[in-house]
Design a protein around this nucleic acid. Structure first.
Lengths: 226, 226
DNA sequence: TGCATGCTTCGACTATGATCGAATGATGTC
DNA sequence: GACATCATTCGATCATAGTCGAAGCATGCA
């Protein structure tokens, strides 16, 4: 009966609507202030503060003080990954909560997952990489092949610089909308950064949605067809 | 703020200690009666019944009536996978809840995850299969190769029979204790069944622990060394 | 120093939901 | 058909935790 880690402690933290909304907002990967998160959670400042204290205490978010602002962020990609897993179940068994609006369509096509690309576009990229042996996958462990290294270099990503960091280069992350893997890790993050840099897409303000420009869409298609 | 599926609804279901314990018990893959789950959850029968109604309503468990018994089971492997993800976070950030007893050690070595082998042994098997190109992995999608088919046939698993079912043959499942993938899907389930059949191991009663016999341990080592 | 801003703490209220005893329903056994 | 077992429903109780207003504490700016 009391085997394994304490599930309920973590799940209860996510189980409150205000906290869940805050965590969802943090899935965008950007750190947010307490007031912004209060807005996201749909609660007052004191309430939000109390929630954030619990999330921090529980190890799901981290906080860094900068001047009179306090920036909250997800504690790590493992937490983001867990939230995606819960989203997957919620999307499949849940009563869909409101009909898919125009926004939901955009979310499905391309969105930010912590700091990398998710949605149909993210999965398409991953499939291309795997299909061309640019990455090799062993379960959730993903490795970059030699030709993959060249491919990313041609795309304008400095792989060597990424490898100096502690963070894993490649990682598979299960996409809640498509139900397939997309590329996470520092390489996934760098790839998305590069797309923003190339002006292929831009982030929609106050949202996880990634909006591709017409040109960017074409360039992306060519990238994963080539 | 209200983007994506409703996280909190699902998380709140797992967030109650009694329900979490019930779900943990169901991670063993066997269906349990309401009274057994009341025991697991540490609550009375009426309370358990109420919890189970919520879990069923929420889509996390299914119920099948047999005579005067009602058997509850996890709604699917996706739910099991989500619970493993939450366990992973709980194990990494949580205050460990009690020191690792002798039981926890056994849990880490080999346990049942829904219906397949997890823990160090499960990961070792997966690594062997992937390393020898007996399976090919694309993120969470795992496919059996030609040589893999032969390997499983030699081990005594009727792959063709499994393929007639709707359930996916291969699947990667993230192990909460080892933090690596192990083999899920109908093939993973069949492999574990075969090990029981060969008397390499047996299940510990009322637990997820899989206890290998000395001979079974040797045979397993030879299997994944060969 | 004085004031504004961002956030947290305190205190009080409230509501949700977890819990169990008792009663009821359903199924199988004798 | 009477009884025992398994399970759910009802009713009442109680505690936990979410909520906000007001006050308190920092930090930054003038």
């Amino acid at each position: 009966m009391k085997e394994g880690p304490d599930l309920s402690r973590i799940a209860a933290l996510v189980g409150d609507p205000a906290r869940a909304n805050m965590l969802s907002a943090l899935m965008s990967g950007t750190a947010l202030t307490a007031s912004e998160l209060a807005l996201e959670g749909g609660v007052g400042l004191p309430t939000a503060s109390s929630h954030l204290a619990k999330l921090t205490e529980g190890g799901l978010v981290t906080v860094t003080t900068q001047g009179r602002h306090r920036y909250y962020a997800l504690a790590g990609s493992e937490v983001a990954s867990m939230l995606e897993a819960i989203s997957g179940v919620a999307a499949s068994v849940g009563p869909k909560r409101a009909r898919p609006g125009p926004r939901d369509g955009a979310m499905r096509e391309a969105r930010v997952c912590y700091d990398h690309l998710a949605g149909e576009k993210g999965v398409a990229l991953f499939d291309h990489l795997a299909g061309r042996q640019l990455i090799s996958t062993k379960g959730d462990d993903v490795a970059l092949t030699g030709s993959g290294r060249d491919w990313f270099a041609a795309f304008g990503v400095d792989v060597a610089a990424l490898e100096t960091k502690r963070r894993p280069l490649c990682r598979a992350c299960l996409d809640w909308s498509v139900r397939r893997s997309h590329l996470a890790g520092s390489l996934g993050a760098a790839a998305l950064d590069r797309m923003f840099e190339l002006k292929w897409a831009r982030r929609e303000p106050d949202s996880r949605v990634v909006r591709f420009t017409p040109e960017g869409r074409g360039a992306f298609e060519r990238l994963i067809r080539a």
